[in-house]
């Protein structure tokens, strides 16, 4: 009997993505862009992948994910100032803080789904954003939390200095590779399949014995942790943390990236979307100030006509090519 399709531990797509990203610092300046852009794309690609765990994989439309990014971003700075100036400790604190924030939100919303879920996450996102702006003594308010250092990364005896953008880029790439590998495993693990089942049919999942609430809470916490990690890297990149990543706008941007790239149909879609978002910002933005207008309009068009996004367009093109390439052997009168 044919064994079911199982996902390989490492896929070609994964290797290609990693290699393409690894080559970026070699050519990005030659095409007129700059190293820091690579760092931004990589961090947001990671964030969008983590976000897609909730939107694409669990079918839970969170519009407040910026909260977790922000929590991670502030936590890494605060840990640096108040706990220890050690990169690993700071990152761990950031992930932990985001997990706590995720758990808090999950506690209130894990019995919801659909539009209610979206509205409640907007409300929570606004709460976190509002606190970040008003809690001046902790976050610096709208001025931001400044002077966050890019701490060196120590691996046993060797230490890497991350102050240059290229060094930071490769550090972020290592984290990105680890996170994307982990997410790939999660998606194909028993846990991930149950979450996917819950997305399709909560009632049935319950009646075959799964505690739906726990899975929905767990996936949100998991996504929050990784978003927090992305936030921590982002404040390292910016050497500061600002409340705007927590705003409804930024929370919406990650939804746009994920959808435009094709997160609903493809694991790597969010990565494509994040790259498209920042390239559009810099390339369209160089021509006109209203780049968001154009990006927003293409988002609207995609939602209306092709919610599967860029990855979906590629997939249907590939299918069409496969169809025309395959010769019709016999008249296919048999309709299944």
């Amino acid at each position: 009997m044919a064994p079911p399709r199982t996902a390989p531990t490492i896929t070609w797509a994964m290797i290609v993505v990693w290699l393409v990203f690894a080559s970026v610092p070699l050519w990005i300046e030659k095409v007129g862009l700059y190293q820091y852009l690579g760092v931004e794309i990589l961090i947001f690609a990671m964030y969008a992948l983590a976000y897609n765990l909730v939107l694409g994989h669990a079918g839970l439309p969170s519009f407040g994910h910026g909260a977790f990014v922000g929590v991670g971003a502030y936590a890494v700075g605060l840990a640096q100032f108040n706990v220890a100036a050690n990169l690993w400790i700071c990152l761990a604190v950031a992930v932990g803080a985001a997990a706590v924030a995720g758990a808090l939100v999950a506690l209130f919303i894990s019995h919801r789904r659909g539009i209610y879920y979206a509205l409640m996450t907007i409300a929570f996102g606004q709460i976190f954003w509002f606190v970040a702006i008003k809690a001046h003594s902790l976050t610096g308010g709208e001025d931001g939390l400044l002077k966050i250092a890019r701490l060196p990364a120590t691996f046993g005896m060797t230490t890497f200095d991350l102050t240059s953008n290229v060094a930071l880029y490769y550090f972020v790439l290592v984290v990105f590779a680890a996170v994307s590998f982990l997410l790939w495993r999660i998606v194909h693990s028993p846990f991930g399949r149950v979450v996917k089942a819950i997305k399709q049919n909560e009632t049935r999942a319950r009646f075959v014995g799964y505690d739906v609430w726990r899975f929905k809470a767990a996936i949100l916490v998991l996504s929050a942790c990784l978003s927090g990690l992305a936030g921590a890297l982002f404040s390292m990149a910016q050497t500061s943390a600002f409340p705007d990543v927590m705003s409804l706008h930024y929370s919406g941007y990650v939804v746009m990236m994920t959808l435009v790239g094709g997160g609903l149909v493809s694991f790597w879609g969010p990565v494509i979307g994040a790259a498209a978002f920042f390239l559009a910002r810099d390339i369209i933005g160089a021509v006109t100030t209203g780049w968001m207008l154009w990006f927003g309009m293409s988002f609207v068009v995609l939602v209306l006509f092709k919610p599967e996004g860029i990855a979906g367009i590629y997939q249907s093109l590939a299918q069409r090519r496969a169809k025309t390439a395959a010769p019709v052997v016999a008249p296919t009168s048999q309709v299944r």
């Binding site: 519009f63 939804v255 927003g296 988002f299 609207v300 939602v303 919610p307």
Partner: peptide
């Protein structure tokens, strides 16, 4: 998603 995009 559509109305969010339109809002933007």
């Amino acid at each position: 998603l559509l109305t969010f995009g339109v809002a933007m």
